[in-house]
Write a protein that binds this DNA or RNA. Sequence first.
DNA 1: ACGGTTGTTAGGCC
DNA 2: AGGCCTAACAACCG
Length: 243
Amino acid sequence: MEGPSLFLLREETKQFAGKRVLEAKGYAKIDFSLLQNKVVQDIRTWGKHYLILFPQFTVRVHFGLFGNYRVDEHKAGKNASMHLRFSNGELNCYIAHIKIIEEEISDIYDWRLDMLSEKWNAAYVKKVVSQQPAGIYIGDLLLNPDIFSGVGNIIRNEVLYRCGVHPASPLGKLPSDKITAIIKDTHKYSLEFLHALPSHTVGKTWTVYNKKLCPKGHTVIKSVMGKTKRNVFICKVCQKKYK
DNA sequence: ACGGTTGTTAGGCC
DNA sequence: AGGCCTAACAACCG
């Protein structure tokens, strides 16, 4: 799940803020008794982190590659990693990594880097990016969750096509205005992704991801690239390799 | 039926 | 110490 899906989950579970946990269980290795009878203070997201705030601690949920969830229903025969029941509904998380965070979340999360936060700040992202090694591929950099919080493999591939940049371009070889354009487009495309989610039409926004041809009819090459070893989809005509 | 995957962390090995 | 690598997750899709 990429950032926009987490944002949607937050929207779908807002009604649990202010509610008391009536039941908490699951196969996750946390002490569920800590959650029992506690009142949810707030529900937030930071990138791909789904955060349930309680007065003394925060439950951090990460869905990883395979995770998913159900609100007010559950999957038959599936074991939830975390099940929370409230008076007005329930949340079930599957194959999710659950962690209890003791720290104040404002100390560990910088909302200027969260693409879908109102506090997201393109100039600040640019500043952080400028401190990265010049040799790093832009394709790898976009998958750094500490900088491009919320960007996943679909968003990085789409943004790089939209900006006309080959993923194996080293950061130091990209013109400054091109870096700015990429940063701004991670935000813009994430919103398009988010808005397409409820109608299940995200696939219609794809230009290269899982495509054989780009919108201009050129061949899209699928390969694995960089340190992140994830699939990249590249149109060699539309995307320039800076070097 | 089975291989690939919309991530990330932990832990081992040099 | 720290960079690099891999396993783990155990589900869904085509």
